[in-house]
Nucleic acid binder design. Structure first.
Length: 485
RNA sequence: CGGGCAAUAGCGCAGGUGGUUAGCGUACAAGUCUGGGGGACUUGGGGUCGCCAGUUCGAGUCUGGCUUGCCCGACCA
């Protein structure tokens, strides 16, 4: 049979599409730029969702749901906000067969409709903090879409909080950024750089945007989550004041933060290989697949043995399945489950059975280990945990190896393969460079190399001294530049 | 949203200058043999050729429009 997956070397972009389609994670839809998330893709999203939801509740947030349709006038209340989102709005102008007096836009994000309600709900410092999260779909009319990474409609989570003081709001912004970092790194095994966005890149309507940036296998950056300190911008736009503890009246301080189904794309592009999807055990719908191998005369006994192993694994709380489909060969099943990303495979044939063993095969390394059947649960548990760690470490090593400190513009141009440098094949990576803080420098670099300022890493802003790698002016920050998705 | 390419069976493709019952591989179904890395043979089912118009006696094939996708730019989780 022909190769299903285009090798990464040949065409990284096609490789990604092949994985998504062939592993049946998603499919194209008849609607431009919108995709169908298929059961396997949705199962992965549900696992991501469940972990984040747990962490949000742990940090005191409650879920709620706001309307998908937002009166256009609401968006216009915050100048920067509407300017930022206007180009990608989908607008509803008819309802019930009649032209609407005021059109609704389909939410591109929910700050405005949520703050219109917060005005009703917040009166006193006793109403604060207000910590609400919403799981929802949003629509942003995209010119260029890619499965999971950028679609016109996507699923996400948006947290919207209101606080008494600026300090509390900033603390919340950073708390949620840290939740993102922790879950994305530990649960999705995707290493990230937490940092601050530049003015150019920040969220429309925010005072400051924090981000976690990850590096894909083609060395391009992917923004994996953002947390915004909104200051009093939306409180002022929607006139949300509260009675302070000392009897005064003040605008509340706000945050918002979000992660989306894009994370599924991040997981795919971080871990997978030319054989197919590679999933961290935490995210895989099944942690272990048992593939029985038998001839006609050994079929019954092998299946019975495999059933016993399946029961032992389930007993131990491991998500295991037995692929007893009789119509495809073991070799077929091996390839199929590798394509689907199952972290651990257990092969059971007559020889294993005779020896009282099973064969453990790791998806990430292809390593095969015979294991005594009595210890199969414990060993599987142990191996799954090792895979979880190994995936993160491998990705972090790759990211670190492709993060380079750069001090001058010529080096920067060479790193990103700009025209005239003779390095057109260079893939770049993360360029860590000093920056003067000017938007002109960002724009200039972008024009020459397509690389943008991804973030200013949070813990690298001390003792900045030196010159901007782009213009030579005194530097104010250390920043990561990269091409991005 | 501009430029380029594409759309024929689930998937991958072939179908010179228009010609009547649209093919091949693979997958699918049934059966027999198989089974430790995508098995073999036999038989069988499956298509309004992306959509809408037009040219023509006749369109998968030519023309126009539209839709969707991919690549390259401009814009963005």
């Amino acid at each position: 049979m022909a190769e299903k997956i285009t090798p990464r070397e040949t065409d990284y972009s096609q490789w990604y599409i092949d994985i998504v389609l062939n592993a049946k994670l998603a499919d194209y839809s008849p609607v431009k730029g919108c995709m169908v998330i298929r059961p396997r893709g949705y199962a992965i999203w549900e696992r991501i969702q469940a972990e984040f939801d747990r962490r949000f509740k742990e940090t005191g947030h409650s879920n709620a749901y706001f309307p998908m349709l937002i009166p256009m006038s609401f968006l216009q209340k915050e100048a920067e906000h509407v300017e930022g989102f206007a180009p990608e709005l989908a607008v509803v102008t008819y309802g019930g067969g009649e032209k609407l007096e005021e059109p609704y836009c389909i939410r591109p994000t929910s700050e405005t409709i949520i703050w219109s309600m917060y005005k009703e709900w917040i009166h006193s410092w006793r109403d604060l903090p207000l910590l609400i999260n919403q799981w929802a779909n949003v629509v942003r009319w995209e010119k260029r879409t890619r499965l999971f990474l950028r679609t016109s409609e996507f699923l996400w989570q948006e947290g919207h909080t209101a606080h008494e003081t600026e300090a509390e709001a900033i603390e919340e912004t950073l708390r949620m950024l840290e939740v993102y970092r922790d879950v994305v790194e530990r649960y999705l095994c995707v290493p990230v750089v937490p940092g601050v966005k530049s003015e150019t890149e920040k969220f429309a309507g925010a005072v400051r945007t924090y981000t976690i940036e990850s590096m894909m296998q083609d060395r391009k950056a992917l923004q994996a989550g953002t947390s915004h300190f909104l200051g009093q911008n939306f409180a002022k736009a929607f006139d949300v004041k509260y009675q302070t503890r000392d009897g005064g009246l003040d605008y509340v301080w706000a945050t918002s933060w979000g992660i989306s189904t894009r994370l599924v794309g991040a997981v795919i592009m971080t871990h997978s290989d030319d054989k197919g999807l590679v999933l961290p055990p935490t995210l895989s719908p099944e942690e272990v697949v048992i593939v029985p191998i038998y001839k006609n005369d050994s079929k019954a006994s092998v299946l019975q043995y495999a059933d016993k192993v399946l029961a032992m694994l389930k007993e131990a709380g491991i998500r295991a399945i037995l692929d007893s489909d009789d119509s495809s060969s073991p070799g077929w099943k091996f390839a199929e489950w590798e394509l689907k990303g199952t972290p651990l495979r257990i092969e059971i044939g007559p020889r294993d059975m005779a020896a009282g063993k099973v064969m453990l095969v790791r998806r990430d390394t292809a390593e095969k280990t015979p294991v005594a059947v009595d210890t199969v649960a414990a060993t599987s548990r142990q191996t799954l945990s090792e895979i979880q760690t190994a995936l993160f470490e491998r990705a972090r090593k790759f990211r670190d190896e492709n993060t380079v400190q750069i001090d001058t513009l010529p080096e920067m141009l060479e790193f990103f393969g700009a025209e005239g440098t003779g390095t057109a094949d260079a893939h770049g990576g993360f360029a860590s460079a000093l920056w003067c803080g000017s938007a002109e420098c960002e724009a200039d670099l972008k024009a020459k190399t397509k690389a943008t300022l991804r973030c200013m890493p949070l813990n690298q802003q001390e003792n900045i001294s030196g010159r901007c790698a782009l213009c030579g002016a005194p530097a104010k920050h250390r920043a990561i530049f990269a091409r991005n998705y």
